[in-house]
Amino acid sequence: MKKPVVWFEESCIKCAICAEEASEVIVFVETTGPQIKEGIDIIPHSEKIKRAAQFCPKECIKYHL
């Protein structure tokens, strides 16, 4: 099985919606945009990440979970 991973593609418009929908795992950094919280185990937050991806206006949240 592939290692679980989440990434944000370039088309991101920095709307911060993902960080609001999945605040437990995604943080929004003003200068660079969304990122996964450092050192966090993402698996327990899979559902939240998928939900955030659903609301992403650019469909740029990608994952293997």
Binding site: I13, K14, C15, I17, F55, P57, K58
Partner: peptide, 10 residues
């Protein structure tokens, strides 16, 4: 405007 539109979409 793009960001506002994204928020309206949500």
């Amino acid at each position: 405007v793009d960001i506002r539109r994204a928020r309206q979409q949500r």
